[in-house]
Write a protein that binds this DNA or RNA. Sequence first.
DNA 1: TATTTTGTTTCATTTTTGGAAATTGTGATA
DNA 2: TATCACAATTTCCAAAAATGAAACAAAATA
Lengths: 256, 256
Amino acid sequence: MEQVKENHQKPYGTVLIKAKDILDYLMKADDPPSLADMSAALSSSKPTILKILNTLDMIGFVRRDESTKRYYLGTELIPYAKKALDSFDIAKVARPFLETLRDETNETINLGIVRNDKIVLVEKLESPNSIKLESIIGGTMNMYSSAMGKALLANYSRKHLDDYLETHKLKPLTPNTITSLPKLRQNLKNIQEMGVSIDNEENQPEVLCLGASIMKAGRIYGAFSISSPKYRVNKERQSNFIRLLLNTQHAIEQTL
Amino acid sequence: MEQVKENHQKPYGTVLIKAKDILDYLMKADDPPSLADMSAALSSSKPTILKILNTLDMIGFVRRDESTKRYYLGTELIPYAKKALDSFDIAKVARPFLETLRDETNETINLGIVRNDKIVLVEKLESPNSIKLESIIGGTMNMYSSAMGKALLANYSRKHLDDYLETHKLKPLTPNTITSLPKLRQNLKNIQEMGVSIDNEENQPEVLCLGASIMKAGRIYGAFSISSPKYRVNKERQSNFIRLLLNTQHAIEQTL
DNA sequence: TATTTTGTTTCATTTTTGGAAATTGTGATA
DNA sequence: TATCACAATTTCCAAAAATGAAACAAAATA
């Protein structure tokens, strides 16, 4: 890992960090690993890994299949993720406005935040006719290919944007994904001018999204978008959506 | 906690358990707590809690608002939850069958597992016309009021069911929720005979669900359900759904 | 400005950890 | 079914880390 920072801090929670490494390994593993796998991969002795796994099992963070002696991530992790998503003030503040927007558009409304240069879906309001089960959302999207992501990139500082573009390859997800740097930069410039971003089947075929950022006093809170099957969006509806997006953005930012 | 088990095991991962207590506290807190709050609530000194919080912050499990010095759960917890939900073989095995079921019914199909006497939603397949964004599902439902839950309760052993009923109050969620013990027992008996459970607006107004369990060799894997706005289900469609449910159940259990 | 409360650092003491080695499963193979 | 090979588990103690009292700093409040 990064050895950059000065290392004169007293060590603390070394077990915690090992535990996180174990959880990471379990998260990334394609097949459920064995004790030996992890001991080798994390270069700690088997007894050490075993004891940590026992504790993690006890608190429900990992699950061990007694017959195969393989390890899985445990379901106890779920409620934390749920609460983490809830805890963004932005969700609480924005929800009523987004509900209005959903009712005005009859389309699906998304709310996202940024984590690790990705958009994390925090809230998804579906059109009123679809049944709503209590669910948490946590999928991620690329910033460069999604309406929410581009709305935020357009607000990044010169330096911050360069950083992002240098470290992220523009992999095409659909034939429409913008994969050329100059085109993306131009697109972001347009978004800056319009105040609204468009993902025209760039992230997912047949889906068009219109997005806007949520910012206040230079701080980035997140972004939201209207997503709709492309065929359902004609010029007239689109300009109406843009108007509604800007109104909603204004209302949310006022309330923050 | 339970002091029942013999306590002659060597302690291990005490920091982990403290860390989990902290995460639990953050999860249950209505308002983001301060260091002092947690030190008091968890009866550990402030330095100790502080240092654990620092480490948790470093690995992204908690987020600290520098200006208010309050703590939140961190977004790094999200991917673990996602993988935990994925790791249930049942989801992998059942998915293709459930997709077929969705296409046959044109309704929303749910898949759930049991955790802590609750149904956890693992998969939700929406009718094909609605747009699908990558999302994780983690909401919970009562067993006694949901189709999936009742399908499983009907398969519980006498003792296990008594246990459940003794420890869970039948709180009404809608006017239709079954809140009388004898009625619920009778309902479960019917479900046992039919092989299919019905939630007739018991969990959510205007929503009717038809559910079935997924079991093999006495082991409970989970349950699935068709959920639909009530008005859309007439007698004829209902009996068709039941037939499809039983076919799907059979197919999944064969494959397991 | 004084006072109280909350967060942070220090450090000696106590407790836990980590892993080598021994032991116990657990299959596979002859 | 006996033998072997390898994975999981337990033992144990030197080495390392955690703990919390106390001192200190910073921020909020009176």
